[in-house]
């Protein structure tokens, strides 16, 4: 197939690629900092006596989802071109898993 877009001749557009890489590095550092920050908040939410489990469990789950998105898009390059199909299948799988869990929580007497 001719869609090997990410396998390019390394000598082409050195300046452009450098700039792109620098930008990407910046994004990675920002998201990495944010992820550490979110982790600290999660620890805090669990440790703090004032929050009940009914707040802190959904809250840290939400933080986990945000972290997964950071991980996928900034570290595993899902934002790049040519990742549409993996993204489709990822979301497809997530949807099936979600429906399954949803059903188990609502119509199965667990």
């Amino acid at each position: 197939m001719a869609n090997h877009t990410h396998v390019q001749n390394p000598k082409v557009d050195v300046a452009y690629r450098r700039k792109k890489n620098a930008e990407e590095m910046k994004h990675q550092i920002i998201s990495f900092t944010l992820m550490i920050f979110l982790t600290l908040i999660a620890f805090f939410a669990v440790g703090y006596e004032g929050f009940s489990a009914w707040f802190s469990v959904p809250f840290i789950l939400l933080l986990a989802v945000v972290q997964v998105i950071f991980q996928l898009y900034y570290f595993m390059h899902m934002s790049h071109k040519g990742h549409e199909l993996p993204a489709l299948f990822l979301y497809g799988g997530a949807a099936v898993a979600f429906i399954t869990i949803w059903a188990f929580l609502t119509i199965v007497w667990i």
Partner: peptide, 12 residues
Amino acid sequence: GNTIIWEHLFWI
């Protein structure tokens, strides 16, 4: 346990 779990998983 819950016997319905099998039915759901099997039919999913």
